[in-house]
Amino acid sequence: MPIDAAKALAAAPRSGEISWTPKDVQLYHLGIGAGVPATDPDELRYTLESRLHVLPSFATVAGAGSPGVISGLSMPGVDVDLARVLHGGQRLEIHRPLPAEGRATTTGRVAAVYDKGKAAVLVLRTEAADDEGPLWTNDAQIFVRGEGGWGGDRGPSTRLDPPVGEPVRVVERAVREDQALLYRLSGDWNPLHADPEFAKLAGFERPILHGLCTYGITLKAVVDTLLDGDVTRVRSYATRFAGVMYPGETLRIRMWRGEGEVRVAVSAAERDDAAVLADTVVQHT
């Protein structure tokens, strides 16, 4: 079978060096819709270098992309058809606020392999640290269709009970027609998000928005709406990618407050609230 779970889990971690500048942070923020209105003081903290704050989800693109995912799919014991690969979920843990400019060492490994019957799930973990210590831990849950059924551990369920009651806030965020074209400049060059012909071959009517772009838009909405705009309050952020979003559509973001956390559900407003992100939790101070 193309995935040898024991071999993948036993493989030595892979390390690399990454760096980023305020320009990279600003480009990421613009890629997730920051800067509207352009002169709003609350937006300038995402776009103006003299007062730049770093949204924690920048960690998913720091160093121009997701080297942990790319490296993980070529680890010993992992030999898969990329056409069968789906990004199923993401969990980010922030150990301390991200600097606007930095250099870090990343270490990537296969942290878990689960057998879901009709699919295998790889948990690809990337840890980043600089001279002052750990910065973040990033877990990408990757579904590989057709690679399950070997009798392995099914793993924990990522499904959560629905939030109770009405959301405390509902906000909408318009996604620009060129949002995916701008976001991909931060490092995800998959033609699925830009090339109409490639998107059709993959089964979509047109290019889709990056799941991690929706992930960033959503975190920014939570920080701006319920966390007083303070990016340093975020401790962790997890989601399950439940559906696609197309550039030009509107994200509807529902939020529920809990003890030290915000539960979130994200849908496509124009498509009868079709789910886009589910089982989404932002833990905070």
Rank of each mutant, 00 (worst) to 15 (best):
Y114F: 15
D131V: 12
R125A: 11
A119F: 14
D131H: 08
G133M: 10
D115A: 11
D131K: 13
L122K: 07
E127A: 12
T106F: 15
K116H: 09
D115Y: 10
H95C: 12
R96T: 03
P97K: 02
A128L: 14
L124V: 03
G117S: 06
A128W: 01
T105L: 14
A128E: 06
E93A: 11
H95A: 15
G133A: 06
R103M: 05
A120K: 07
R96Y: 04
V121W: 12
G102V: 08
D131C: 06
A111D: 09
P97D: 00
A119M: 14
R103W: 05
A128V: 14
R109T: 15
A128Y: 03
A128Q: 13
P99K: 00
D131M: 04
D131W: 05
I94L: 03
A111H: 05
A112K: 06
A112D: 12
Y114R: 14
A112C: 10
I94M: 01
V121D: 08
A112I: 11
V110L: 02
E132L: 14
T105R: 15
V110I: 15
P134V: 12
D131Q: 09
E93G: 09
K116R: 12
A129L: 10
V110Y: 06
E127K: 06
L122M: 13
D130Y: 13
R103Q: 10
R103H: 14
V110K: 05
Y114L: 07
T126D: 02
E132P: 05
L92Y: 02
Y114Q: 14
L124C: 01
E127T: 14
E127C: 06
E101M: 12
T105W: 05
V110W: 06
V113L: 01
A129C: 08
K116L: 03
A112E: 10
K118T: 09
R91D: 10
G108W: 03
T105M: 11
V123C: 04
E93Y: 04
T105P: 04
G133Q: 11
R109P: 04
A104P: 15
E127M: 13
R103V: 12
E93N: 02
L122W: 11
A104M: 12
A112G: 07
L122E: 07
Y114V: 07
R125E: 14
G102L: 02
A120Q: 08
K118M: 07
H95D: 09
V113I: 07
H95M: 13
